[in-house]
């Protein structure tokens, strides 16, 4: 399966939810504003994440990146503006309606946020156990997800026994149970060594290119941007996943970049456009000098 074939799937009617019109963005922010006391966190933020697209959100600490994710999950309410998930305005939703929306969203936290008192199996099975799914089905789904993140051997371990990278991967497996349409990554590679960070990015790439998932990837690490916007995943004839690099003849259409500064979007476009910008703040952020 080539990257372009994947894109054909993303925009084909058969690949969309029957009740959602074709072309409806997976996530849409319309003039969203948020402030804590006198401190403005987001100021008229508007953007869309089309279906099957990964939006990389860059920005320094305190720029409002993680707040965007909390708003999508309904953990924080905006002061003004609208947030639409698959065309549905979640802004006026109460907790019960938000629970329904959250079931369609997978969330990968910075440190994994695994439940300390539960084993890896129980953590990954959590969402299905809560829904009262049959035990055999739960086991099948959990093992499928642990295979996806290559952690089948850790099924009986407790979170405390796992390394930082393993915790993040279990967090990803837990987020993917139930096949969510949207996955949110909140700095999932923070504090990890480069090979492990690369593994986490590869999982995000696999989700984007092979699983038809829309995602927001919050990060401030430039190597994440490099991996996500230049590599793509393909399946060979045996069904094995391979990662290939974007070449001269191939343009990555399913990855967008957005940059925040003090609650305002200061850049929106592709990785190439970001690198070509002459804005001194962005240049300093990219090069570190």
């Amino acid at each position: 399966m080539s990257l372009f074939e994947t894109h054909q799937q993303l925009i084909s009617p058969s690949a969309t939810n029957g009740s959602v019109p074709v072309g409806t963005p997976a996530i849409e922010f319309q003039d969203v504003e948020l402030a804590f006391d006198d401190q403005i966190v987001l100021d008229k933020v508007s953007f869309t994440v089309p279906k099957g697209v990964t939006k990389i959100v860059l920005g320094s600490s305190g720029s409002g990146k993680s707040t965007i994710i909390n708003l999508i999950l309904g953990l924080v309410r905006p002061d003004a503006g609208r947030i639409l998930i698959a065309g549905e305005d979640i802004t006026p939703f109460d907790d019960m309606d938000l629970m329904r929306i959250r079931k369609r969203i997978g969330m990968v936290f910075q440190e994994g946020a695994l439940f300390d008192s539960l084993s890896v199996y129980e953590n990954v099975a959590y969402r299905l156990d809560e829904q009262g799914v049959d035990e055999d089905e739960v086991e099948h789904e959990v093992m499928r997800m642990l295979r996806f993140v290559d952690l089948e051997d850790a099924v009986d371990k407790m979170p405390i026994e796992l390394s930082g990278g393993m915790r993040r991967r279990v967090g990803i497996a837990r987020a993917l149970v139930g096949n969510p349409d949207i996955v949110l990554f909140d700095e999932p590679t923070a504090g990890l060594d480069p090979p492990t960070a690369r593994t986490i990015c590869e999982l995000a790439i696999k989700l984007r290119d092979l699983e038809d998932v829309s995602s927001i990837f919050v990060t401030h690490e430039m190597n994440n941007l490099e991996y996500l916007s230049s590599d793509y995943a393909v399946l060979d004839r045996e069904g094995n996943v391979h990662f290939e690099q974007e070449g001269n003849n191939l343009c990555m259409l399913n990855t967008e970049v957005m940059m925040l500064r003090e609650g305002v979007i200061i850049f929106s476009g592709s990785e190439d456009e970001l690198k070509a910008t002459r804005d001194p703040y962005i240049r300093r952020f990219i090069t570190g000098k």
């Binding site: 953990l75 907790d95 629970m99 946020a113 969402r127 809560e130």
Partner: peptide
């Protein structure tokens, strides 16, 4: 501890009150 390690947020994100 669950709040500071984001486990409460994770619980809400997984659809549990």
């Amino acid at each position: 501890s669950m709040v500071v390690s984001q486990q409460i947020d994770a619980m809400r994100a997984l659809g549990t009150s």
